[in-house]
Design a protein around this nucleic acid. Structure first.
Lengths: 134, 134
DNA sequence: TACATAGTGTTATATTATAACAATTTAAAT
DNA sequence: ATTTAAATTGTTATAATATAACACTATGTA
């Protein structure tokens, strides 16, 4: 078997939208995506949101909740985990996905006061990126 | 000195909106807040959003980003920290603020690949609450 | 083939949030 | 007490984000 993950063959709309997000250096907002794919025949918000929903579901992209924006996954394990962490620069809005085994181990093993553990989480760190700090 | 924190005396609108959120057993959405305070003379979305912005800024409430909803702070240290963590039940939408010294210590000491540390973060855990698990 | 599931295209609308501007209140500093 | 700056308010309008509903089409699989 080549892989453990189901191969999600993307549909036309999903592929168009994924390609756009994937080559963007920064998170993209839904209506900016819409504007950019109109020449490819995707004309309505719902077409964009449906593709975004699916891409998020299968882990190809993530939503940056505090920014209502979408970024391509940098980390193959997200296809199964739904456990995400990002650093966000409050000056230039640069977003970087964090893939730290230590962090994810700590968070998946974290127990709340009732002893409950969580395999799904989203963590957003805020600060100034290297460039903006200098 | 009684306290280290500046006392933010809330204005009328801020107090009305804080009281409403504080006595709500669940996170409240902006337009639900608006509906509930109209009898008190707050008539426009902007009046609500302005109060919400201020209350978030001074740490009296927090925004649950994945739900676009607001919850009163359960944890006095938020007035200074802006470092928040929540558990969210995906079934009943119950939200609980997590205050764990261990977790906050781990996260504020966490270093990314470039050695960068972050004092501001927001973490949302997802799962099923005690009630919904049974 | 036939059936179920997922995806599409479309119109309309719901929900969340901010812009701009004039007036008023508050805090603090003379 | 008076002046001044900063914050808050009230208001109208509008921007930005997201979903409902419905008819139709494509795809995978039994």
């Amino acid at each position: 078997m080549k892989t453990m993950h189901k191969e999600h063959t993307l549909t036309k709309n999903q592929q168009i939208i994924f390609d756009l997000i994937d080559k963007s250096p920064e998170p993209m907002k839904a209506y900016s995506i819409l504007f950019n794919v109109q020449k490819k025949g995707i004309k309505a918000p719902l077409q964009v949101y449906r593709a975004l929903d699916k891409l998020v579901e299968i882990g190809k992209i993530h939503k940056i909740e505090s920014r209502n924006a979408f970024i391509a996954c940098q980390n193959s394990s997200c296809q199964v985990a739904k456990a995400t962490a990002f650093s966000i620069c409050e000056m230039c809005e640069k977003v970087t996905e964090i893939s730290s085994a230590g962090l994810s181990k700590y968070l998946t093993n974290f127990k709340d006061k009732e002893g409950m553990k969580y395999s799904k989480y989203n963590l957003e760190f805020f600060g100034l990126c290297k460039k903006c700090r200098t």
